[in-house]
Simulated assay, not measured.
Amino acid sequence: MTAPALYRTRIRHVRRTPVRHAFGYRGLSWFVDLDDLPRLPVWLRPFARFDGRDHFTGTTSLRAGLDAVLTGAGLDPTGRVTALLAPRAFGYVFNPLSLYWCHDDDGTVRCVVAEVHNTYGGRHPYVLFPDADGRAETDKVFYVSPFNPVEGRYTLRVPEPGERLAVSVTLHRAGHRPFVASVHGRRTPATATRVAGAVLRFPLAPQLVAARIRVQGVALWLRGLPVVPRPTTPSPSLEASR
Protein backbone atom coordinates (compact mmCIF):
# COMPACT_ATOMS: atom_id res chain seq x y z
CA MET A 1 0.00 0.00 0.00
CA THR A 2 1.06 3.60 -0.64
CA ALA A 3 0.77 6.07 2.22
CA PRO A 4 -1.43 9.04 1.29
CA ALA A 5 0.38 12.27 0.49
CA LEU A 6 -0.40 15.87 -0.35
CA TYR A 7 1.06 18.00 -3.13
CA ARG A 8 0.90 21.76 -2.83
CA THR A 9 0.74 22.55 -6.51
CA ARG A 10 1.37 25.34 -8.92
CA ILE A 11 -0.97 25.09 -11.90
CA ARG A 12 -0.37 27.05 -15.10
CA HIS A 13 -2.48 27.40 -18.27
CA VAL A 14 -1.10 28.98 -21.44
CA ARG A 15 -3.28 29.66 -24.50
CA ARG A 16 -1.21 30.68 -27.53
CA THR A 17 -3.82 31.09 -30.27
CA PRO A 18 -5.97 32.77 -31.44
CA VAL A 19 -5.61 34.93 -28.31
CA ARG A 20 -2.53 34.86 -26.14
CA HIS A 21 -3.60 34.31 -22.55
CA ALA A 22 -1.83 32.79 -19.53
CA PHE A 23 -2.62 32.43 -15.86
CA GLY A 24 -1.49 30.40 -12.87
CA TYR A 25 -2.69 29.61 -9.39
CA ARG A 26 -1.84 27.45 -6.40
CA GLY A 27 -3.79 24.35 -5.45
CA LEU A 28 -3.77 21.12 -3.50
CA SER A 29 -3.85 17.54 -4.77
CA TRP A 30 -3.92 14.20 -2.98
CA PHE A 31 -1.88 11.13 -3.93
CA VAL A 32 -3.60 7.98 -2.68
CA ASP A 33 -3.79 4.21 -3.01
CA LEU A 34 -7.18 3.39 -4.53
CA ASP A 35 -7.50 0.27 -2.35
CA ASP A 36 -6.54 2.10 0.85
CA LEU A 37 -8.12 5.55 0.72
CA PRO A 38 -7.30 7.94 3.59
CA ARG A 39 -9.25 7.55 6.83
CA LEU A 40 -9.33 11.05 8.26
CA PRO A 41 -10.42 12.07 11.76
CA VAL A 42 -14.13 12.90 11.96
CA TRP A 43 -13.47 16.64 12.29
CA LEU A 44 -11.50 16.68 9.02
CA ARG A 45 -13.86 14.62 6.87
CA PRO A 46 -16.02 17.55 5.70
CA PHE A 47 -12.86 19.04 4.11
CA ALA A 48 -11.67 15.93 2.27
CA ARG A 49 -13.87 13.01 1.22
CA PHE A 50 -13.31 10.64 -1.70
CA ASP A 51 -16.55 9.52 -3.31
CA GLY A 52 -17.10 7.20 -6.27
CA ARG A 53 -20.00 9.40 -7.41
CA ASP A 54 -17.46 12.05 -8.43
CA HIS A 55 -15.65 9.85 -10.98
CA PHE A 56 -16.28 7.74 -14.08
CA THR A 57 -19.96 6.70 -14.32
CA GLY A 58 -20.66 7.94 -10.79
CA THR A 59 -22.70 4.85 -9.98
CA THR A 60 -20.25 2.74 -8.00
CA SER A 61 -17.07 2.90 -5.92
CA LEU A 62 -14.02 4.73 -7.23
CA ARG A 63 -12.07 1.49 -7.70
CA ALA A 64 -14.98 -0.30 -9.36
CA GLY A 65 -15.43 2.64 -11.73
CA LEU A 66 -11.80 2.50 -12.77
CA ASP A 67 -11.92 -1.28 -13.16
CA ALA A 68 -14.87 -0.90 -15.55
CA VAL A 69 -12.84 1.53 -17.66
CA LEU A 70 -9.90 -0.88 -17.81
CA THR A 71 -12.14 -3.82 -18.67
CA GLY A 72 -13.80 -1.75 -21.40
CA ALA A 73 -10.36 -1.11 -22.89
CA GLY A 74 -9.57 -4.84 -22.89
CA LEU A 75 -7.24 -4.69 -19.90
CA ASP A 76 -6.99 -6.80 -16.75
CA PRO A 77 -8.22 -4.56 -13.90
CA THR A 78 -6.21 -6.32 -11.16
CA GLY A 79 -3.14 -4.68 -9.67
CA ARG A 80 -2.28 -1.78 -7.41
CA VAL A 81 -3.50 1.66 -8.45
CA THR A 82 -2.23 5.02 -7.22
CA ALA A 83 -4.16 8.18 -8.00
CA LEU A 84 -3.71 11.94 -8.03
CA LEU A 85 -7.01 13.74 -7.49
CA ALA A 86 -8.90 16.30 -5.46
CA PRO A 87 -11.41 15.25 -2.79
CA ARG A 88 -14.90 16.55 -2.15
CA ALA A 89 -15.01 19.50 0.28
CA PHE A 90 -18.28 20.54 1.93
CA GLY A 91 -20.27 18.59 -0.64
CA TYR A 92 -18.52 19.99 -3.72
CA VAL A 93 -15.75 18.59 -5.90
CA PHE A 94 -14.03 19.68 -9.09
CA ASN A 95 -11.25 17.61 -10.64
CA PRO A 96 -10.17 19.11 -13.99
CA LEU A 97 -7.73 16.20 -14.34
CA SER A 98 -7.53 13.03 -12.23
CA LEU A 99 -4.71 10.56 -12.91
CA TYR A 100 -4.55 6.85 -12.10
CA TRP A 101 -1.32 4.81 -12.35
CA CYS A 102 -2.17 1.13 -12.85
CA HIS A 103 0.64 -1.25 -11.84
CA ASP A 104 1.63 -4.81 -12.69
CA ASP A 105 2.36 -7.29 -9.92
CA ASP A 106 6.05 -6.32 -9.99
CA GLY A 107 5.19 -2.64 -9.41
CA THR A 108 5.77 -1.49 -13.00
CA VAL A 109 3.30 1.09 -14.30
CA ARG A 110 1.27 -0.75 -16.94
CA CYS A 111 -0.94 2.13 -18.04
CA VAL A 112 -2.28 5.49 -16.89
CA VAL A 113 -5.90 6.57 -16.96
CA ALA A 114 -6.35 10.32 -17.36
CA GLU A 115 -9.89 11.29 -16.37
CA VAL A 116 -10.79 14.74 -17.68
CA HIS A 117 -13.67 16.73 -16.17
CA ASN A 118 -15.26 19.83 -17.65
CA THR A 119 -17.21 22.61 -15.94
CA TYR A 120 -20.50 21.24 -17.34
CA GLY A 121 -20.40 18.11 -15.18
CA GLY A 122 -19.06 15.86 -17.94
CA ARG A 123 -16.09 13.51 -17.61
CA HIS A 124 -14.13 11.24 -19.91
CA PRO A 125 -11.29 8.73 -19.26
CA TYR A 126 -8.34 8.36 -21.62
CA VAL A 127 -6.36 5.11 -21.26
CA LEU A 128 -2.71 5.83 -21.96
CA PHE A 129 0.46 3.78 -22.32
CA PRO A 130 3.33 6.16 -21.48
CA ASP A 131 6.93 5.50 -22.43
CA ALA A 132 9.79 5.30 -19.91
CA ASP A 133 9.74 9.10 -19.54
CA GLY A 134 6.01 9.15 -18.79
CA ARG A 135 5.09 10.55 -22.21
CA ALA A 136 1.94 9.49 -24.08
CA GLU A 137 -0.28 10.74 -26.91
CA THR A 138 -3.99 10.50 -27.61
CA ASP A 139 -6.58 12.15 -29.85
CA LYS A 140 -8.82 14.76 -28.22
CA VAL A 141 -12.36 13.35 -28.14
CA PHE A 142 -13.96 15.21 -25.22
CA TYR A 143 -15.33 18.77 -25.03
CA VAL A 144 -13.50 20.65 -22.28
CA SER A 145 -13.25 24.35 -23.02
CA PRO A 146 -15.94 26.46 -24.72
CA PHE A 147 -13.08 28.08 -26.66
CA ASN A 148 -11.50 24.92 -28.07
CA PRO A 149 -13.16 22.56 -30.60
CA VAL A 150 -13.01 18.80 -30.13
CA GLU A 151 -10.14 18.22 -32.52
CA GLY A 152 -6.40 17.80 -32.32
CA ARG A 153 -4.08 15.53 -30.40
CA TYR A 154 -2.78 15.66 -26.84
CA THR A 155 0.76 15.01 -25.68
CA LEU A 156 0.81 14.23 -21.97
CA ARG A 157 3.73 13.85 -19.57
CA VAL A 158 2.41 11.83 -16.65
CA PRO A 159 5.28 10.20 -14.72
CA GLU A 160 4.13 8.78 -11.41
CA PRO A 161 4.97 11.42 -8.80
CA GLY A 162 7.59 10.91 -6.13
CA GLU A 163 9.12 13.63 -4.04
CA ARG A 164 8.08 16.02 -6.80
CA LEU A 165 5.07 16.17 -9.10
CA ALA A 166 5.47 17.27 -12.72
CA VAL A 167 2.57 16.75 -15.13
CA SER A 168 1.84 18.54 -18.39
CA VAL A 169 -0.77 18.41 -21.16
CA THR A 170 -0.15 19.96 -24.58
CA LEU A 171 -2.77 20.21 -27.32
CA HIS A 172 -1.44 19.94 -30.89
CA ARG A 173 -3.43 21.09 -33.89
CA ALA A 174 -2.44 21.88 -37.49
CA GLY A 175 1.25 22.26 -36.79
CA HIS A 176 0.95 24.44 -33.69
CA ARG A 177 0.27 24.10 -29.97
CA PRO A 178 -2.73 26.25 -29.03
CA PHE A 179 -2.87 25.19 -25.39
CA VAL A 180 -0.49 23.94 -22.67
CA ALA A 181 -1.30 23.15 -19.03
CA SER A 182 1.14 22.06 -16.34
CA VAL A 183 1.03 21.06 -12.67
CA HIS A 184 4.07 21.05 -10.40
CA GLY A 185 4.30 20.35 -6.71
CA ARG A 186 6.27 18.99 -3.77
CA ARG A 187 5.18 15.99 -1.73
CA THR A 188 4.31 16.06 1.97
CA PRO A 189 2.80 13.27 4.14
CA ALA A 190 -0.97 13.49 4.60
CA THR A 191 -0.94 13.43 8.39
CA ALA A 192 -3.85 14.95 10.29
CA THR A 193 -1.68 17.94 11.22
CA ARG A 194 -0.58 18.49 7.62
CA VAL A 195 -4.10 18.11 6.29
CA ALA A 196 -5.40 20.62 8.83
CA GLY A 197 -2.69 23.07 7.79
CA ALA A 198 -3.56 22.59 4.13
CA VAL A 199 -7.24 23.18 4.86
CA LEU A 200 -6.38 26.45 6.60
CA ARG A 201 -4.20 27.51 3.67
CA PHE A 202 -6.57 26.30 0.93
CA PRO A 203 -10.11 26.49 2.33
CA LEU A 204 -12.82 25.39 -0.11
CA ALA A 205 -10.12 24.39 -2.61
CA PRO A 206 -12.39 22.80 -5.28
CA GLN A 207 -14.78 25.75 -5.20
CA LEU A 208 -11.88 28.14 -5.76
CA VAL A 209 -10.49 26.12 -8.69
CA ALA A 210 -13.87 26.08 -10.46
CA ALA A 211 -14.38 29.80 -9.81
CA ARG A 212 -10.94 30.69 -11.17
CA ILE A 213 -11.51 28.74 -14.37
CA ARG A 214 -14.86 30.44 -14.94
CA VAL A 215 -13.36 33.88 -14.31
CA GLN A 216 -10.67 33.20 -16.91
CA GLY A 217 -13.35 32.03 -19.35
CA VAL A 218 -15.24 35.28 -18.93
CA ALA A 219 -12.01 37.20 -19.50
CA LEU A 220 -11.43 35.35 -22.79
CA TRP A 221 -15.00 35.96 -23.91
CA LEU A 222 -14.66 39.68 -23.18
CA ARG A 223 -11.55 39.70 -25.37
CA GLY A 224 -13.64 38.43 -28.27
CA LEU A 225 -12.64 34.77 -28.37
CA PRO A 226 -15.48 32.92 -30.13
CA VAL A 227 -17.39 30.26 -28.22
CA VAL A 228 -17.44 26.71 -29.63
CA PRO A 229 -20.85 25.11 -29.02
CA ARG A 230 -20.93 21.85 -27.11
CA PRO A 231 -21.33 18.77 -29.33
CA THR A 232 -24.82 17.27 -29.38
CA THR A 233 -23.45 13.73 -29.66
CA PRO A 234 -21.63 11.97 -26.79
CA SER A 235 -17.91 11.27 -26.78
CA PRO A 236 -16.90 8.17 -28.76
CA SER A 237 -16.54 4.86 -26.98
CA LEU A 238 -13.36 4.37 -24.98
CA GLU A 239 -10.31 3.02 -26.76
CA ALA A 240 -6.86 2.46 -25.33
CA SER A 241 -4.34 5.02 -26.64
CA ARG A 242 -0.94 3.53 -27.32
Rank of each mutant, 00 (worst) to 15 (best):
R223I: 02
L238P: 00
R214C: 02
F90N: 06
V93M: 08
A166V: 01
R20W: 13
R164G: 08
V112Y: 01
A190D: 09
Y25K: 07
P46S: 14
A210M: 10
A132V: 13
G74T: 10
V127K: 09
G185R: 05
W43N: 03
L62W: 14
A136M: 06
L99W: 01
V69A: 09
F90E: 02
T155E: 14
Y143H: 12
V69F: 11
R80F: 01
D131G: 12
T170W: 00
G27V: 05
A219T: 15
E151V: 13
H103Q: 13
T9N: 02
T9V: 12
V127I: 11
A240I: 06
G72T: 11
T155L: 14
P38R: 15
R39C: 10
W221D: 01
L238H: 06
H176M: 06
D76W: 12
G79N: 09
D51E: 15
V209Y: 03
G72K: 02
L99E: 01
R242T: 12
A219R: 15
A166Q: 07
E163M: 08
T193R: 15
W221I: 01
A166W: 00
A198I: 02
T119C: 10
L165V: 09
V183S: 04
D106H: 10
P87C: 03
G27Y: 10
S235Y: 01
Y154D: 03
G122N: 07
V218N: 05
P203H: 13
G91S: 07
T82W: 07
V141P: 00
G224R: 06
L84A: 06
G91F: 09
H13F: 08
G121M: 12
F23G: 03
G74F: 14
V32F: 12
L97P: 00
I11K: 00
V93K: 00
P206D: 03
M1N: 08
H124E: 09
V112Q: 03
P77Y: 11
T60I: 04
V158D: 01
